[in-house]
Computed example of a mutant assay.
Amino acid sequence: MINVSGRTLQWDELIDEVSVSSKGIKILEELNKSSKVYRFLSFKELENTILIREHIMEAAKKLNKSNVTFAVFEETRADDRYWAVTEQGGIRLKEGVKPSVAISDIYKNGSEYAFECATAMIIVYYYAALQYLGAESFNNYFTRLYLYSWEADSDLGLKIVTTTDPIPGDVVYFDNPDNLEPQWQGENAVYLGDNLYYGHGIGILNEKEMIEQLNTLGRSNEVDAYMLDKIVRPSFDHWIGLKQGYTRSDRTTSNRIIVYENINHHNQVSISYYYHCSLVNMLNTGTITITINGTLD
């Protein structure tokens, strides 16, 4: 259900008022038929939200075709013209490299790259942001990229929504509770609509196929994999604000950038954003300590 400026609209009204692509029409249909009320201040905000979702979906499809491969943190690879791989398996932007060029290279020279599936989702978001904002704005906002699990620049504005009703462009998580191989403890996946999902290392499958693959790859033999009700979305209104021209003075540097030295590296492969946030919180409060390659991080 869609509400614009306090008014709940019928489908015929939406079609008359909203200008989106043919792919965007499908997203509009999903928003409209949802039992959840999606509220927008204006039709322009609705149109931009749909456009961002399109960019996320397209970024996922392109990454699927890019020849990037799945790898645990110890086997992470990246093109060393643009990135440095850290001892923890993160991918850190080199000094003097434009973020837009480095992110685009993952899509152009995918065979040079290997990373796990949470990292893949962040790459999808960065590439979608690049397409939506353009290179100049992207380079202004995303200056110090560091790709490691779900670590992300705060300007992505990632948030968790509790629902079992994903909209195309959402990121879901298929949990594999009794897996015997940690890299297949679950799969982050971009919902592409029409019951299709893109998961790094698995490809584009429908929900049933995704669950069957996880059960097989993780050697799960008692409990089937299933989709969690924790869905990840970026802050669409914030992305719209970035496109409208927020400047550095609008946001504090400490909130806006990723500081590599402050990252808590948990070394957990293929985890959900919800679990990642829980781990980081426990690390920050000293509840747990993670050991990586024999040294405390």
Rank of each mutant, 00 (worst) to 15 (best):
Y141N: 01
S104L: 02
Q183I: 07
D105F: 04
Y141T: 09
G218N: 15
G201W: 00
D105N: 08
Y198C: 05
E187I: 03
V124E: 09
E212V: 11
Y132V: 15
K208F: 06
A114Q: 00
Y173R: 00
I204T: 09
G203Y: 02
L156W: 10
G110H: 07
S100R: 01
A129E: 03
E181A: 04
S100N: 08
A118M: 11
G169H: 14
A135S: 00
I160E: 12
L156C: 14
G169M: 14
N179V: 04
G157P: 01
Y146N: 10
Q131E: 08
E112P: 08
N188Y: 10
N109P: 00
P182E: 15
Y148L: 08
K208S: 11
L133F: 00
N179R: 06
V161S: 00
Y173A: 03
A135T: 01
Q131H: 02
C117D: 13
F115N: 06
S154C: 06
I202L: 13
E136N: 11
N140R: 10
G134R: 09
M210Q: 09
I106L: 13
V190C: 01
S220P: 15
D105H: 03
F174L: 12
D175W: 09
I202P: 11
E136K: 11
M121G: 01
I204Q: 10
A114E: 00
C117I: 03
P177M: 06
G203K: 13
Q183G: 08
Y173G: 01
A120Q: 09
E209T: 03
M210E: 06
P168C: 10
T163N: 13
D105W: 11
G169C: 14
G199S: 15
L130S: 06
I167W: 15
E212D: 14
S154W: 02
Y126K: 02
Y141W: 13
A118L: 11
A135P: 05
K159I: 13
Q213G: 10
I106M: 13
R144K: 15
I122V: 14
L147H: 05
D155K: 08
G201I: 03
W184L: 13
L180N: 01
D105C: 03
V171C: 12
S104G: 05
Y125I: 09
Q131V: 02
L147Y: 03
L130D: 06
I123V: 02
L214K: 04
K108A: 00
D105Q: 01
F174H: 07
P168Q: 05
Q183F: 07
N109L: 00
V101H: 14
N140A: 01
A120W: 04
G199A: 15
N179F: 01
Y148E: 09
L196S: 13
P99T: 04
P177E: 05
L217S: 07
Y113N: 11
L145P: 06
L217N: 08
A152F: 15
D153Q: 03
E112Y: 05
M210D: 04
L130H: 03
A114D: 05
Y146H: 15
